[in-house]
Nucleic acid binder design. Structure first.
Lengths: 228, 228, 228, 228
DNA sequence: TATGAATGAGGATTCATTCAT
DNA sequence: AATGAATGAATCCTCATTCAT
């Protein structure tokens, strides 16, 4: 009780607000992530946090605000993780690779937080979905940026990819990443690195060819793009 | 109101069980899709269905069974739609294209059903998630099959894609499709066809190159794959 | 389907009212006896009776009336059984013995009916308890009569048992019989005859001595009645 | 309303859990005893207890547990009352007499509790019946013990009563007592003491004679046991 | 004679939230 | 800084009962 903050789930009483708040958010992430917003009960959250219910209300006001706080904290953590991986001066492909690795690693290490962001928050009405949308747009913007950077680095003579195409591609990439994160979390023996590699290969190679002007078209060129 | 049965959404009483059941499922898809499993109330479902609550219980037994019935009906409908698009004898790329188009069309036309399948069912515990997993695996299998078929049709001399790669790719593709479906649903002015095209381009081109042996590797070939 | 009434649980349609009614009462005895009045559902009764619910209402009007009808039928059956055993001209002890035997036999053979009379009917409010009270009073009266008859037959010179005493004794006897019926029903290997013998021994012997003027008194005669 | 805490059944708020719990149990005994398990509503119990329904659930968890708690409390109270009356060193007849008096007094003073134990608990399925069976067996054991003690005290030379006989007798006695308790409760002007005396006379005298070897037998000794 | 379709009313249980200390 | 005591408002589900045929 002298110097040093208590950490862990001990039954320490009378600790500073900031610490208590984090304990509550930790508990909330866990419960919300596992049970979902509606099924999570303030009772259980308070119990897991090791405090009384009124204290949760004193600090976080309501279930809705608590959930929002959780979403924000987790979103910030994920975005930070992804950003932290990418050195600003590295080439675009290296940055994408680093970002993907960080993404899969973070989601694998924080399954409850990932569940809150990817499943729960988007599943329950407007106050929350918006919160995640903001984060997702940051992600999409990040990827869009990298695609553009890649194009610049290639200083190719081919026409730019239309910005609408870029938007769709970024969406698809982020969606694929999200889906793979779930898959990696659920599938025994699929590591974050493998998931990242799978996606990177797929994305980068396809992206390159697209830039070279190849397209698939209904009716297709005979022999198709698969032909040798 | 003389002769002739009322048809349409009117307040007709006393209709055969099968009909009433579909009305209930329609209402349930809507409410579950918009509110989520927990937040949806049997009261509201009954009201929207235009019947009393006891009748809902008489026919569908419990909230859980009702939700399961909804999931099954919607899953079946989606799978059928996707399958219906693809002529069995067409080349693999045409079949994938048709499947994607059907997928985006169906999800766009049945946003509530899509929400139930993609968001709600997977968000709430084991009885339901499993139900969707079955469907999703059907989808992944379908895509995996097409990738393999594409390879065969190309009768190229290059080595087969490793089956692990194929698994990851199929996952990524399905995930990207799911994500794009949400995006198309939420974004004004993005049609199902465009979404399908974006993904098809991305997927098919990348796939072709992958089969040709191109890979992205950490550390990368200088100049990257984007270079001309 | 030709001549002869269908009996048993078959699915015969269109049978005379009297028969259908008995089927319903049979089902009702069973369900009421096992579940209790409140827990028994008209649904289950109708199902066990092999008819639709509206028919039960058509014939028996309401749950309350149905239960009353059941009580009456079972009460009548039990009283008849007890009376049937006792030849009017036999000596009092023989008649009591015969009555007891019949009682224990009937309750053993109709556990559901006995449950309805002894447990369920008396447990649920006034309309029903009264119904059983009538029957019980008949029983008590029967026993009272026998005690009196026994006294007459003994044409002893000792003073009559006070009528209040007789009342209490009859109550005690009937109560003991009821209790033993439950015990015999619940205890593996205790036959109706044994139960009857136990009670008869106990009752008749005690009765005899009481008539002879022996009494137990607080403070007791030293050595007590047990002394040799 | 000035200084001083309100005591009694007033609408005092905020009292310690233990107190509130007893109030709830008091209310529950009353409602369960009068209406029966199924017909009793948690709403009414809460109202009679002077609290809100959620508080009842907070403290007693469910209707089932509440009923069980009630049964246990009442059973314990009855057994204690019966035991308290009997001085361990007194002769067997005095102990039986004291026990009977206490029994009839307690049941007369707690008709709702007695109803719960004797009627309601035994009428509704297994979780509850078992609870009472335990208590009843304690009673039977108590009586059995006294019969045996009586035999010892008499140190007579006659053969012991067979243990099976003793079992049946104890059952009959307890059953008779239960039945008389109902009768005394229902009949204006029958006091606990009178009920006890009636039974004591009947039981003790009969018991004595039985020990002396008298028996009633089918076919009987001519003239019967009633004869002088 | 017989039933498929339908409901009003009520009951157990849970939950987010607030007082009073 | 922290909590034991307490509740209004839903929510799921069941049941006795009735129409219309």
């Amino acid at each position: 009780m002298g110097a040093g903050a208590a950490s862990g789930a001990g039954k320490a009483k009378r600790m500073p607000r900031a610490v208590r708040e984090q304990q509550m958010l930790d508990a909330a992430v866990r419960i919300f992530g596992r049970r979902g917003y509606r099924a999570a009960s303030m009772d259980e959250i308070a119990e897991v946090a090791g405090v009384s219910k009124p204290l949760v209300y004193l600090y976080l006001n309501s279930k809705e605000e608590l959930f929002t706080a959780v979403i924000r904290r987790e979103a910030r953590a994920l975005v930070s993780a992804v950003r932290a991986g990418a050195e600003p001066k590295a080439p675009a492909d290296a940055r994408l690779w680093a970002g993907l690795r960080a993404f899969f690693l973070h989601t694998a290490e924080n399954p409850d937080g990932w569940s809150v962001l990817h499943r729960q928050a988007r599943t329950h009405g407007e106050p929350f979905a918006a919160e995640v949308t903001v984060m997702r747009e940051e992600m999409v913007a990040f990827v869009t940026l990298l695609i553009a950077a890649a194009a610049r680095e290639a200083h190719s003579s081919e026409p730019e990819l239309a910005s609408r195409d870029v938007g769709g591609l970024a969406q698809a990439l982020v969606g694929a990443a999200e889906s793979l994160a779930d898959w990696a979390n659920a599938t025994e023996g699929v590591s974050a690195k493998e998931a990242a590699a799978t996606l990177m290969n797929f994305a980068w190679v396809g992206l390159g060819k697209l830039r070279e002007g190849e397209r698939w078209m209904p009716g297709g060129m005979p022999g198709g793009m698969l032909g040798g």
